[in-house]
Design a binder for these strands. Structure first.
Lengths: 234, 234
DNA sequence: AAATAACACCTAACATGTTACACGCTAGCT
DNA sequence: AGCTAGCGTGTAACATGTTAGGTGTTATTT
């Protein structure tokens, strides 16, 4: 594992600073969201540290951050576990996501530029191709990227990071749902409707369309809970 | 400083776990939000550790968490500073607050119970008394408590914590504005209008009233920036 | 005198040793 | 047999030692 490859700072503005704890954080987060690590599974700090070739410190730091984000559960003096799925927490995350993204899309619709719109449409085109070849993973990534782009289009510094963090729980669930996902085409059509509303600078319609889109996930979630109860908490 | 006074766990449900890093976090956060520590001021981990009678580890952990929250700025290998106020970050925080709290109040208005309403009105009564004796600090605390109670009334697990965290930046600014604050009575009237709309189970009016309430802060902010430019970043 | 390069200092980042506590197990008591 | 108390084990929490790199200063060169 590389050491801080470049911690450049202009004293007023942090350019980039990739410390080991940041790298460990990114690796673990990715592993959790992609379900390489299963909900409920123990995380042994010492082993993770050994595997990544670092000491326990940056691993602990990364795990603390993940705990804040709700992706791991730390039981003091006992152990650290990949967080199980809690329906009530998912409900809250869904609510927050809905509130933030509908508000963001309203702003985006008001201040959309042709350039950004072109980026949106390129993304949609790629989504269409991914859907046609049934490439779930790729489709999912493009989906996430589109939501990020909409956040950026709202023109608020740091909003994407906040939205992305609050979406962690949802992203995990969506990943697990991928293989039960049969509505890729429907999802694509919803995305197109959202972008269309933005293009027409119609904030209200954009927000309502986004809302309908986000709420689709609820039913699938119940399906997952029946199929894989072991992933869920109490 | 006390050691984890009780880290009780029922394996499925964390009851309470006050570790040293939690205590340090709470102390530092309070100090920053209340402006006992000024924006831009250096935080010397070693000195903080000595003052609190702990080692550098829990202090570092607490500071990492505060950095996530945007309350401190860490410059790798250089130093840690109380975050200055950045207009663009405050703008984003304001946006997030608006999105979350208007959405929360809609839900609260839909599911309000007489008991909760009574609590709201008790709070308002206390606010009135605090306003009458020009007790800024007390009024401010009651204000925060009211917003927290509204979050809780939305009936979503963990929403208050999320909202409270995202409000950190705003809370700092409001504290600084307290002594320039001349509109305590107006604020109280706005609060009363919000609660009234909830009581009448009118989500739309409640949300619009809340929106107007939150947006009041903008002008005061510009005033502060002129009076105390040293608190602000670039 | 101005520009630049070398260097010393200070800090966060990282490594590692130590402690205390949650939990499971077992033995002993009822 | 069932229940409780004490003990052993393993982990996070905490303490402390070490390293590396950013910043400011100073010396040197032009």
């Amino acid at each position: 594992m590389q050491v801080h490859s470049s911690g450049k700072i202009f004293r007023e503005q942090k350019v980039v600073s990739v410390t080991r704890k940041d790298q460990v954080y990114t690796i673990l987060r990715q592993a959790i969201i992609s379900s390489q690590l299963s909900p409920g599974e123990a995380i042994r700090k010492e082993i993770v540290a050994a595997q990544l070739g670092v000491s326990r410190t940056p691993v602990s730091d990364a795990i603390n951050r993940l705990a804040d984000e709700g992706l791991v559960e730390i039981y003091p003096q006992t152990g650290t576990f990949v967080a199980r799925l809690w329906l009530d927490k998912i409900e809250t995350a869904q609510f927050v996501r809905l509130a933030l993204e509908t508000a963001a899309i309203r702003r985006a619709a008001e201040r959309i530029t042709p350039d950004t719109l072109t980026l949106f449409r390129q993304n949609l085109e790629q989504q269409r191709r991914a859907a046609e070849r049934l490439d779930f993973e790729q489709f999912y990534e493009l989906d996430e990227a589109l939501h990020d782009m909409i956040c950026d289009a709202a023109g608020l510094v740091g909003l994407r990071e906040i939205a992305s963090k609050e979406r962690s729980q949802i992203d995990r669930v969506r990943r697990l749902l991928l293989h039960y996902e049969t509505r890729m085409m429907e999802t694509l059509i919803e995305h197109e409707a959202i972008i269309e509303a933005i293009a027409e600078k119609d904030p209200e319609r954009a927000a309502r369309t986004m809302e309908a889109h986000i709420l689709q996930m609820g039913k699938l979630l119940m399906h997952l809970r029946e199929k894989r109860p072991e992933l869920f908490g109490s």
